[in-house]
Design a protein around this nucleic acid. Structure first.
Lengths: 187, 187
DNA sequence: GCACCCGATGTCAGAGACTGTCATCAACTA
DNA sequence: TAGTTGATGACAGTCTCTGACATCGGGTGC
């Protein structure tokens, strides 16, 4: 038997989500989060670079999914088609996660510091996508623009998907948004 | 004669730029910035919400320029044309500011906390643009998508414009990027 | 000209995020 | 059995940011 309870990062992440939802982000101290997880403040900072980061542990997983899908797209696919394929994959990933996603988005929207961190994650995603496109032979600035536009579509669609009375699946909203983007830019 | 030296915010902003460039963002304390400006730390926080904000004082001015230009575009102009007009205006605003812009971008790129704040400013800009478009009668999600795509073009173009050996004017780079965006999305 | 208020700043104390450093101790390894 | 490793605890310290109250030159009403 191990000396400590396993999964310290996951326990910290769950404690943080609960406390942020119960009492608010500002009002929750890191010491309090660590206490609920049965750890100390110092250990929190060994697992997460800062207080905000605890809400974004899964984002690298999503990034990998995007990148891998772009890399795996058929050679014949254009850059936007490759990105569209990645958006499709992402919508699959989020199926069955809508309730959690809504709760998490509510917490993030409640404080600008968290919104700010989410923007950083989206920017990371765009950078990673651009690199994946360049590795497919797409030149700059097309690679960066496609990546940025793709992430913009994802962000707008995701926001609608987590809106209160929205029922449609994410994939459908993304497809619609991609169509809108095409209409807009052809004007 | 006034009781204090005038332009406290401007003095703080200049002191901050100098110190960040000389010693680095992390290494520079707010107390040190205030000292160079002949003020106290407490006064710094009366003028700027946090340490990062001191580098982004001018961003609301740029935002207003964007919004006003979109609002002033001819009724016949489509959403992307209105945003393109705003991008044109912005390139005019930055003429004669290239050296300063390069120095500022160098500081911002040097620390993730500053990059993060810049992303927030860009997101604000996109939100403001989307609102301006809706006031022109553009529906969602077209308004948000056009705004996001426009800001993506601006960001990509601005980054190229401040790159080391780049000589072309911002307007030219923006026009090129807009063309690229059209090509990409029509695939 | 005088009493009064206003607004920008200073002073001080304190909470909370984050870091460096060293100690602890179960599990593993030679 | 002795030594090493790796996750954690303990503790002190720095820095960001906030609240509360004091200061005082300049303008305002009279």
């Amino acid at each position: 038997m191990s000396r400590w309870e396993p999964n310290a990062p996951a326990r910290l992440a769950q404690a943080a989500m609960e406390l942020f939802a119960e009492a608010g982000y500002e009002e929750t101290t890191v010491a309090r989060i660590a206490e609920r997880a049965g750890l100390t403040e110092r250990t929190f900072f060994r697992h997460f670079a800062d207080k905000r980061e605890v809400l974004f542990a899964g984002s690298s997983e999503l990034e990998a999914l995007f990148v891998d899908t772009v890399a795996a797209a058929p050679e014949s696919a254009g850059p936007m088609q490759a990105v569209a394929a990645a958006l499709e994959q992402a919508s699959g990933w989020f199926v069955d996660r809508r309730t959690f996603a809504r709760a998490r988005q509510a917490v993030i929207s409640s404080h600008s510091a968290l919104t700010e961190r989410e923007l950083t994650k989206m920017a990371r995603l765009a950078t990673a996508l651009a690199r994946a496109l360049r590795e497919r032979g797409v030149e700059e600035p097309a690679a960066s623009l496609t990546a940025e536009a793709g992430v913009a579509v994802f962000r707008v669609a995701f926001e609608r998907w987590t809106a209160p009375r929205e029922k449609r699946p994410l994939g459908e909203i993304i497809t619609e948004a991609l169509g809108e983007l095409r209409t807009i830019t052809s004007e």
